[in-house]
């Protein structure tokens, strides 16, 4: 359950940062990404997958959330 800091980069893409691992990645896709609902599975550009409990509405980026690691991508 790593704490993940999420922010939007200049292209509006989601940037994923895990401080403990120095992991800085752009998210390829987010399962739920609409004004009403956000979260679910997030696929990173290095192939790894994380899961966020879906929440109502968009989080106020940048924000730190707890994620579950699903797949290391290796």
């Amino acid at each position: 359950m790593p704490s993940v800091m999420l922010k939007k980069n200049t292209e509006g893409k989601l940037v994923f940062y895990v401080p403990k691992k120095d992991l800085e990645e752009v998210a390829e896709s987010v399962e739920f990404d609409s004004p009403e609902k956000w979260g679910g599975e997030v696929l990173l550009s290095d192939g790894s997958k994380y899961y966020f409990e879906p929440i109502d509405g968009q989080p106020d980026f940048p924000v730190t959330l707890r994620a579950k690691r699903l797949d290391s991508g290796e």
Partner: peptide, 12 residues
């Protein structure tokens, strides 16, 4: 970078 990231989150 740690403090910069903190300020980004807390103070935008």
């Amino acid at each position: 970078n740690y403090i910069a990231r903190h300020m980004e989150e807390k103070y935008k």
